[in-house]
Nucleic acid binder design. Structure first.
Lengths: 412, 412
DNA sequence: ATGGATTAGTTGTACGGATGAACTTATGCC
DNA sequence: GGCATAAGTTCATCCGTACAACTAATCCAT
């Protein structure tokens, strides 16, 4: 049986999560913080119930009360609620083709720490790269100084990942194959040994960050196809705010869709392919392509139009299959959007069967740079939002920082 | 707010549905009926709770007790539970290119009535066809004799349907465009006027029936890509037993995927295309193609191999995008499976990026013939399983049940 | 037959969680 | 200072599930 019996405790758990999310969802949207009364109005729960739930969350360290704002109207002033800054954190990491890095977020979405290392990792050796990532993680953890409790860690990779075993199956642009990433990281970093990283595709995690950035309370949650143009081309599908991963989390493999004359999308619209088609070398980098396009270089703009057409055709296939007419350009494509947008949209209009009745849209990504690291951290923080009960600190334990899981604590 | 507050009644509702589904799920799998104790064991609910829930469902007319089977073991014999036959029914209808029909199912999945009319509807006039369908519906309702309560009606169509307005946007193989199907049916049939039909794509509803047929209690619910080869080619995606429709229910439009040399899947692997490629005429029908293939006709088998390759390529695109490696061949393709299966599988193995780690599978549909009509009825019956509370009959309304409260002048 | 073993289902009490109404607290406004 | 207004708390109540003890209905061994 997939669905499970609901008991009294399930009610609590559900409503606890509902209240927590209702309080936190205003952060991303830059809305004023909510009070107990606001939460009651937004959720439909009784005031008394909300008070009880909020009190439990505050006692458990998942919410904090702010100082009452100077009131505008008559009536007792409200007590604004927020996430307590820096008490619960998650580590998001990424290894991509030209950089690797770590970003630490707390429940409020604040970046507590960030460490980046730029280098060309094509054809690199995993046993040289992964220890370096482990080191970044340890530096970040040390910088936190044991303040926040750690929810977990996650790692974005530009390839196919076996999330159950922690093995990277295939990352064509790194040249990695069947690498025991989780195992090697555990050797390199005590933190990652204690909190085994959730592995996922770079595009999927970037899309998660994008979904978070697009969340607007009141509106329905966003649905879109996210295309991440890095060296490789990956896509991810977000439906009603939830990432759609498929059976193994491998959904969104669009790089190998054939877009004409036997060539794949990656061969036409991958970063290197675009550079070459623009008469540049792969080493020139994205900046030179942008510069060429900005000064109106005919070869470059032609190359981008071609790439955009191919991208649009591939995306039309995706939209026809999943019926999500909003496309978001991320990664490299976000910077190139001024030149890609129109050809992509034109291709969508032509090839999407339902286009006359559901206008396709092409947006540029809103999320912060290197969204996959943010998305990785959010993937872990999402566990707290989904099951707050598991993360409540028993006030009887200690006023400081106890460990939620029996895993060996990083600092003793 | 999408997620809503959970109150005490939500618990009841959830568990009521859980119990109902737990009892009914054994039907499709041809397993012995379950007793209260079985349900308690399967759900994890306490025996007392299950008894209360079952009693409520029985009183409400959604479950019935069978005569105790002759017991095999020691102990008090169990009371087997089932759906009461013929008390709650749904009407599934279909208009396709070469037939139209109606099928009535009750909660147990039993076919209470079925009416078919074969005719060529290409280029037909909606205002001639739809009244005919309305008539079939009325005949079916008359045959039921007012016994079962009606849950609702649903209609499968070979095209793009606007489910909010009930308008058929575009059905290329019927030649219909922007037809107010729901409105015209309401004029033709009092039943359809009273129970406005849920419109959906033929492949989607067929996939729903297939998902039902593949449900095996204990196992996780099935996930697969269903391809329905009728005159047109449609696909549908089932994930964990749930139909994935996308934003508007238009997911699965694979007919227009380009499969080489600028030709679409439908132009290569549509029924007419296959017949022509096999050296037959479109009027010869599927039987002649099967016959030709069975006697080893070289042209026919070549044509089927080509079609299978194209189908496999298109499906590889789908599998790459949604990561659901199991494919089910339905409709025409099910009959042609002996010749299509291998080329489809070969194409999947070659073009699905993740194929080495998640073996693609190609199965033949299990559902009964004309599955879309069954799926249409199931779509409506699913509402009962999802929210049983809405369908409980108040025992006080029943003619045979004595009123529990000292009557307060019931009916006039 | 009779009593024990076994399993199904019921009864009654306890408990946890949401609710609504009344109440307290804290402000602005006249 | 009194009134209006709004936020948050307290308390009695209701509802649904759990647990344990109980009754019911069978097989089986003696």
């Amino acid at each position: 049986m997939r669905p499970t019996a609901a008991r009294q405790a399930s009610l609590r758990e559900h409503n606890l999560g509902l209240v927590l999310r209702t309080v936190l969802e205003v952060r991303a949207a830059h809305q004023p913080p909510r009070s107990r009364a606001d939460v009651a109005a937004a959720t439909g729960l009784a005031k008394a119930t909300v008070s009880a739930l909020v009190d439990q969350l505050v006692a458990g360290g998942l919410l904090a009360e702010l100082a009452p704002a100077t009131p505008q109207r008559a009536g007792r002033p409200a007590v604004p609620l927020t996430a307590p800054t820096g008490t619960l954190a998650a580590i998001g990491a990424e290894v991509n083709v030209d950089y690797l890095g770590v970003r630490v977020l707390d429940l409020a979405g604040t970046v507590l720490d960030e460490r980046l290392a730029h280098r060309d990792l094509r054809g690199s050796a995993p046993d040289e790269v992964l220890p370096l990532l482990g080191e970044l993680v340890e530096q970040a953890v040390a910088a936190l100084g044991g303040g926040p409790r750690l929810v977990g860690t996650a790692l974005a990779l530009p390839g196919l990942v076996d999330r159950s075993t922690g093995i990277l199956r295939y990352a064509p642009n790194l040249g990695w194959r069947d690498v025991d990433v989780a195992g090697m990281l555990a050797d390199a970093s005590p933190t990652l040994a204690a909190y085994p990283p959730l592995l996922a595709n770079e595009a999927d995690l970037a899309a998660r960050a994008e979904a978070d950035a697009r969340e607007v309370p009141g509106t329905g949650r966003p649905s879109f196809v996210y295309v991440s143009g890095e060296i490789g081309v990956g896509a991810a599908l977000v439906l009603d705010g939830e990432l759609f991963g498929g059976r193994h989390g491998w959904a969104g493999e669009v790089g190998h869709i054939v877009v004409g004359e036997g060539r794949t999308l990656e061969q036409v619209a991958g970063q290197d392919a675009m550079l070459r088609a623009a008469g540049l070398s792969a080493d020139d980098g994205l900046d030179s392509l942008v510069a060429a396009a900005e000064r109106g270089d005919a070869v470059a703009t032609r190359a981008l139009a071609t790439a955009g057409g191919a991208l649009g055709l591939a995306l039309a296939n995706v939209v026809n299959v999943v019926d999500v007419p909003d496309v978001v350009l991320g990664g490299t494509y976000a910077r190139l959007a001024p030149w890609l947008r129109d050809p992509v949209l034109a291709a969508l209009r032509r090839h999407v069967l339902a286009a006359p009745w559901a206008q396709p849209r092409v947006d540029v990504a809103l999320a912060a740079p290197l969204p996959a690291m943010t998305g990785a951290a959010l993937a872990q923080l999402g566990r707290v939002l989904a099951h707050p009960v598991d993360w409540l600190v028993d006030p009887a334990d200690q006023p400081d920082a106890p460990t939620p899981t029996p895993a060996t604590a990083p600092s003793a």
